[in-house]
Amino acid sequence: MTARLYRADYPQHCRTHAIDGMTLVFHRPSGTTHFLSAPAPEMLILLSEAPMSAAVLCQRLCEQLDLPQDDEALYVVEARLDELIASGLVRVQGLDPH
């Protein structure tokens, strides 16, 4: 099974503004406004540095935020990834395992 790779292009194409501990994002290509809470902005920054799989992303994120890396963390990362893909802020790059 080929792992899917994800990538982002952030904060290019965006206006961002920190507000109440969240990040307010205006995404120019889609013209939509998003409210992002942790760890979404951190995920976007990591995925903008290099495309990576959900597992690698989870590992990097847990190191960065000093969190235990377990199944629960991976579950959170995957759930947020789905939202970010739906919003268009993250896209899949690499083969679909299906």
Binding site: R15, I19, D20, M22, L24, F26, R28, G31, T32, T33, F35
Partner: peptide
């Protein structure tokens, strides 16, 4: 909260989305 205010103002605006980045700023 500022975030709550931002959301309330956008929800009540009929042209916020169409005005794009200028309106966001």
């Amino acid at each position: 909260h500022k975030s709550e205010l931002f959301v309330s103002l956008t929800e009540g605006s009929t042209n916020y989305i169409a005005l794009g980045q200028t309106a966001f700023e």
